[in-house]
């Protein structure tokens, strides 16, 4: 098991192995996104309360889910980088942050667009929206910290520490915001009361969610591979690789 772990943690091996996974991920994410989105937008019957505007969930929900899971993955990579001093994990932290920030932003924007026809307002200080906003700020902090260092190795370790501190804080932030909302806001806005989702609507949603996960993995691998080539540009195998092309 350890040998396997060490093999994957070597940038060179990771570069070669990830090259084999890459096309599969690309095909999987494109197919499930295209099929899921067309199915969701064109073939699922409209919601009886929200009409057609509910269809934005096929982008909104996957983006939010992957943004949160992405933070968890990034923090795990940060822990790996700090405990075992694996440089590859640093690179994963660095590359995951902008993708996660973009997905969080997408979730916020699609949420606002959805909110306008549904609740009649672009923005509500609701517990969930607020905690996603704070998640966006956490991602921005990690990107800003990484960019501020000139020494990229120190930058990676500093971002890893910040990602871990953020991960400890995320549950606290989530519950505090939940508590704050129940304290301040009387139940004036009820969230359309849909506790369960119809299976016919759920199936394309599952498809787009898995599509977003594969997309995240695909883009992350591409970015990490670029970062590996950049950081190892003075090593022999990278030079050989370039000469082959």
């Amino acid at each position: 098991m350890w040998a396997w772990f060490h093999k994957w943690s070597s940038p060179r091996w990771f570069y070669q192995l990830s090259g084999r996974v890459l096309p599969w991920l690309a095909v999987l994410s494109l197919v499930s996104l295209v099929v899921g989105v067309i199915w969701g937008l064109a073939f699922v019957p409209p919601d009886y309360k929200q009409g057609n505007s509910f269809r934005i969930i096929y982008i909104h929900v996957p983006a939010a889910a992957v943004a949160m899971a992405g933070y968890l993955m990034m923090a795990t990579a940060g822990a790996i980088s700090l405990i075992w001093r694996i440089k590859l994990a640093d690179m994963v932290v660095k590359c995951a942050a902008p993708i996660g920030a973009a997905l969080t932003f997408l979730a916020l924007v699609t949420g606002a667009i959805w909110g306008k026809p549904t609740w009649g307002t672009w923005w509500v200080w609701d517990a969930r929206i607020t905690s996603v906003l704070v998640l966006f700020f956490l991602y921005i902090g990690i990107i800003a910290l990484y960019e501020a260092f000139d020494n990229k190795e120190a930058a990676g370790r500093a971002s890893a520490i910040l990602a871990l501190v953020g991960a400890v804080n995320i549950p606290i932030i989530y519950w505090s915001v939940e508590w704050w909302y129940s304290l301040h806001q009387p139940a004036s806005i009820s969230f359309t009361g849909e506790s369960s989702i119809h299976p016919e609507m759920l199936r394309p949603l599952m498809l787009t969610i898995s599509g977003f996960y594969c997309f995240f993995g695909w883009v992350l691998l591409l970015q990490v591979r670029n970062e590996i080539l950049h950081r190892e540009r003075n090593t022999r195998w990278v030079r050989d690789l370039i000469l082959q092309r």
Partner: peptide, 9 residues
């Protein structure tokens, strides 16, 4: 930027 989001709770 780093610290203020963590101050929220």
């Amino acid at each position: 930027l780093l610290v203020l989001p963590l101050f929220v709770p």
